[in-house]
Amino acid sequence: MSLSAKDDRLRAPEGKRTMTVSTHSSPGHWQTKQDYDAYKEELTEKMLAMIESVYPNFRKMIIHMETGAPKAWERYTKRSNGYVGGFPQITEHALFGSLSHRSGLPNLWLCGDSIFPGGGTIGATVSGIHCARSIAPGLFVL
């Protein structure tokens, strides 16, 4: 759950804030249109109920709500099945188990949320920095 800054006028008008709430789920829940629609509704309800367990009457404060699910994410990000964050961040894929920016093939370098050090804006950016430093050593000094 993330909330826009109080003074952010790009995401919400004065006196209002934008909130984004997300979770991960199994791809098996989203296979058919019927399952997709039903699970989207069920998961939305579960998430709202969980928020209200901490912030009572939360729903009464909602002015507008957009609900997305994996197919929407797939459409806008081009990630198969709406997957996010690269490989699952489990011990096997973390730190020294991560994929290296060095592909092992001449002139092919890798960066992004599936490459060491991993997901998120910072992790993906750092993977790009590692990659750039390997391509042009000495050129990128931070």
Rank of each mutant, 00 (worst) to 15 (best):
F116G: 00
P106C: 00
H93K: 03
E52K: 05
G104R: 00
K78D: 14
P106T: 07
H101L: 00
Y39Q: 11
L3Y: 07
F87L: 13
T121Y: 14
G123H: 04
W109Q: 01
G112E: 10
H24D: 03
G128F: 05
H29D: 05
M19F: 11
P70S: 07
V21A: 12
E66M: 08
K16W: 09
I135T: 03
N107A: 05
S134Y: 02
G15H: 08
A94T: 08
K71V: 06
G82T: 06
P137D: 08
S127K: 00
N107K: 10
G112H: 10
D35K: 11
V21L: 15
T32H: 02
C111N: 10
G118E: 05
H29W: 10
G138A: 09
V141C: 03
V21F: 13
K71H: 14
H29T: 00
H29G: 00
L105D: 00
D113E: 15
A38F: 12
A124T: 15
D7I: 01
I135H: 02
A132I: 06
S98E: 07
F140G: 00
L110F: 12
S134C: 03
R102E: 10
M50V: 03
I51V: 15
G104K: 02
M61D: 14
M19R: 01
F96Y: 09
M65A: 10
F87G: 00
H93W: 05
S53P: 03
G86T: 04
N81F: 12
D37K: 12
R75D: 11
M61L: 11
W30D: 01
Y83M: 08
F116Y: 14
M50G: 01
T91H: 07
G86W: 05
M47Y: 04
S134N: 09
F140R: 01
G82M: 08
R17K: 10
L95R: 05
A132C: 07
F140W: 09
G97A: 01
A5R: 14
N81Q: 14
E41A: 15
T77E: 09
G82K: 04
D37W: 06
I90S: 01
L110N: 05
E41Y: 06
R75W: 12
L110V: 03
S26N: 13
P13T: 07
R11Y: 12
I63E: 15
L10K: 08
G119P: 09
G97F: 02
F116V: 00
N81V: 05
E41H: 09
H24M: 04
Q89C: 06
E66F: 13
L108Q: 02
I122Y: 13
D7R: 10
K40D: 01
L105V: 09
Y76Q: 06
W109F: 15
L10P: 00
F116H: 12
F140S: 01
F116P: 00
K46D: 13
T67E: 11
Q89H: 09
V21T: 09
Y83S: 09
D8F: 11
G123V: 02
Q89N: 09
V141H: 10
P106I: 03
A69D: 13
I51E: 04
L48A: 06
Y55I: 12
I63S: 10
K6H: 06
A72W: 15
W73P: 01
K78Y: 14
G118F: 05
G104I: 04
R11Q: 14
I129V: 15
A72N: 12
S114D: 05
